[in-house]
Write a protein that binds this DNA or RNA. Structure first.
Lengths: 341, 341
DNA sequence: CTGAAAGCGCTTACAG
DNA sequence: CTGAAAGCGCTTACAG
């Protein structure tokens, strides 16, 4: 492995000049730059990032802390962040922080803080005040994805508004018996996502003058199977079968479609179904949904970070950025039918 | 940010001793160690990984190169690798190398080789001889997951055997008109996966004395939708409808189940379906399959790497390690029924 | 068991 | 525009 000295020697200049020519910091005559560059490529030289980081204090590396990897939403955020980071010349160091407080403390202490990263993207992670302070004290920008974090720039989506929009879509089609499959309390820690979506659903109903009926509410674990089971409960109710179901995620909504089919109900003739996400599979199932764009979320997080890392091009925004969402109507929702009753 | 000097001062020892006490390399008296450790924690000291790496030449960081992030198989491999790496005290730097040769060269030149990582896990990536040589020359262990790489330790699965097993399962249930939905050529680059699975299917048929019929073969893109469409073709064939379908992935197999339902065929009464993977959704759909264990694959890759990184605990294995697989019979396969013909 | 000092491979004021 | 030299924060022979 050739070092900077060898390049300097071959090019007939000092190591300082090599550093300047290759990094673009500081002036170097065009001719010299040429010589340096060709010497470097001849030797196959590539700077040692450790040495460079130690000297400059910058690592060109961003830590991404994410609770799960193999779920559509999270892996999409990760994908978006990765490609944006790569485009900006940054590496991505991955910290999968599913578990308990211990694992988490360990990651913070032993990894994040080792000056290994210039900044942190925290996905769906509620940092404690101490953790935030510590990172900020070190002058490491943080951006949170998924919910507001005190004192930290965040990207978040208006879950109440999304849920209201989905429900209003059903209302506008004439439905009045609209059930909701929400998330378990287990998912409450993610910035009260289940509650927010439920609140959006209820507020839409109330605005339409329709009383909220606890019989039309079920919870599940955001999976297809969970949605399927919850939907069976709903559809099986002999005295109050919903004509429409709003599920808090597309996977649960797909489970709902499958449950309807298994009960001999047709979608959307007998029951309309809408979800939230615009999951990979939703188009295939013809599912109407409110799209959130996780890849975009990852990309936006990187953009915000770059602004903070390179204050020159700083566009100074607000502390919290709202994420876009969009109603996508496919074939799982339709006007309430006469076939019913 | 306190440095090692401050810890040394507070503990009343030299920086050398601090380093030794904290890292565990070299002898330090118990009393001194105590003092150092409490001084360090009092100051909130944590070593700078850059400085440490520069001095030792080791980064405690492993690069994982992976073609896609948001697909079940790959994200599961990643998850397995991540947790195993974390457990071993290593960081994971992620390189998502979907694209073209350019992006790829760029990653190699500008990232991997910057001495940022101690080792590389290459998932489903055919490295060129040059790339392999270069990494090996730098003394960076590599382990490939997904297929044999010349001169590199690899983990691979016997796709021919898996496909044969799946097909034999159908044969043993009395099926003789068995269709296969294989992968597109587009996926051939992944170590000829589609071809290998097709070969396994055909060899099982031949061993059973059943001629291979091109009318019973379709290709798709490994997605549910692709499987659905291919299955419709198969089931729609008026003169040769299969009684069983072996799909080269679970997502395609699930698509097949849905296609059957939409045509009014019952699974498994009218048609048996088997896939490969044991995807997250397979249990929910009652899909019989041959499981491969991607998380385990990620974990094993890390183990092999650790053996090479820490030759002390070297268990010196062969160059290529075969991955386990297992037939899982659920409710999508059954004895060929009398209802047919 | 412990310390003084060299060295890891860069970058960047400071001079010129 | 370019070079000599200090410094980034550790680790580790080398002595003792």
């Amino acid at each position: 492995m050739p070092g900077i000295n060898e390049v300097a020697e071959l090019a007939g200049v000092s190591t300082a000049t090599v550093s300047r020519a290759l990094s673009g910091n500081g002036h170097v005559s065009a001719a010299t730059r040429e010589r340096v560059i060709s010497a470097a490529s001849e030797l196959g030289y590539v700077v040692s990032s450790n040495a460079s980081s130690l000297a400059t204090g910058r690592t060109k590396n961003v830590g991404v802390v994410i609770p799960v990897l193999n779920q559509w939403f999270y892996s999409s955020v990760l994908q978006g962040a990765e490609s944006a980071l790569l485009a900006n010349g940054y590496d991505l160091t991955l910290y999968n922080l599913g578990g308990g407080a211990d694992e988490r403390r360990s990651v913070f202490e032993h990894f994040l803080l080792r000056k290994r990263v210039d900044a942190v993207i925290a996905v769906s992670l509620e940092l404690t005040a101490g953790e935030t302070t510590r990172l900020l004290d070190m002058n490491k920008p943080i951006v949170g994805v998924g919910g507001p974090l005190p004192g930290v720039r965040t990207l978040s989506i208006d879950d109440v508004a999304i849920a209201r929009l989905a429900t209003e879509h059903l209302l506008s089609l004439g439905h009045t018996t609209i059930a909701h499959i929400g998330g378990n309390k287990e998912y409450e820690r993610d910035f009260h996502l289940p509650t927010n979506r439920r609140v959006g659903y209820e507020s839409a109903l109330e605005a339409a003058g329709i009383p909220v009926d606890p019989e039309l509410f079920q919870t599940a674990d955001f999976t297809m199977r969970g949605g399927y089971q919850a939907a069976k409960q709903l559809f099986g109710n002999p005295r109050k079968r919903p004509t429409a179901v709003f599920a808090a995620s597309d996977e649960m909504a797909i489970g709902t479609i499958l449950a309807a089919r298994d009960l001999g109900l047709e979608v959307p003739e007998d029951v309309s179904v809408i979800g939230i996400d615009d999951h990979d599979l939703s188009d295939f199932f013809g599912l109407s949904t409110v799209a959130q764009f996780p890849e975009l979320q990852g990309r936006l997080a990187v953009e915000i970070l770059m602004d903070q890392l390179h204050p020159s091009r700083r566009t100074q925004g607000t502390l919290n950025t709202s994420l876009p969402y969009e109603l996508i109507v496919r074939s799982s929702t339709a006007r309430v039918s006469n076939r019913r009753r």
